[in-house]
Design a protein around this nucleic acid. Sequence first.
DNA 1: ATCGCGACCTGGTTGC
DNA 2: TGCAACCAGGTCGCGA
Length: 318
Amino acid sequence: MPELPEVEVVRAGLARHVVGRAIAAVEVLHPRPVRREPGGPAGFVAALVGRTVTDARRRGKYLWLPLDSGDAILGHLGMSGQMLVQPVGAADERHLRVRFSLVEPALSVVEPALSLLEPAPSVVEPAPSVVELVETTPLELRFVDQRMFGGLSVSVGGAELPAEIAHIARDPLDPQFDDAAFVRRVRRRSSAIKRQLLDQTLVSGVGNIYADEALWRARLHGERPGDRLTGAQVTELLGHCREVMLEALGQGGTSFDALYVNVNGQSGYFDRSLNAYGQEGRPCARCGTAIRRISFMNRSSYFCATCQRPPRNRSVPH
DNA sequence: ATCGCGACCTGGTTGC
DNA sequence: TGCAACCAGGTCGCGA
């Protein structure tokens, strides 16, 4: 499930392979992923054809591609979304929903070396062989999404920050994230701490998996009310959110070098490094107690009942 | 205003 | 064997 680290890997891939290219054609193969588009599939296509992608940005789990028109393509991967960069002619994926045909911008055709002299600031300079492939092969950006919880839309004037996601908080890896304000807000609410971690208006990018992992590291049960936690506890928990997502990002980093931008590989993090999520019945890495699974917020929550004591003053069935 | 829940989706797995 | 129920869960919208 794409959470912040996986979405960031996708963003970096788009920054490398898509930014600077022009959109020659758009094909919407299923209407649902563009359901948020006021103009429907036709409006979506019309707003994009002929535009050039100027950047690849992210806030929380949302991605957007600013365009030379001042608009942006706003996207969310949902549960199963992928952004794939494929050569023209590659077989269609089973759940291909939207296809963008990308052409080289005129500048690169005339002066192919320019992009080498001016790499995007936040992107590691790609290996020469990759650059050659990218700049000589016609590409497609493909939105593939089996379950279609994800979506794409055109955000009018949204190049800097789409108005549609103005309510989404900064994420913990954003240098401008306000730790003190987060701690203050959490401690003002009686809502369960896990619910607050998943509230994208408080902190973005954290999903069910990294919430469980951060709570395990902090030795906190997800049903503990926020207003019953100390400032030190919330601060430590926030640090664990950062830590666990940075570790996952590090393990997903290998796909930065691939032309094939994939989020479904789950960054390799899932196979080895999870201490709580999905570990029902396995011994806790700290104390050996079997990890338990409970239903919370109509989701699964995994925790160690020894290290993460459930709150006492609540009528929680067990 | 805040809070919490159901709906939206598909396909793999489980249960009868 | 066949079919129904269940499960995965991010986000939105609605009702309390």
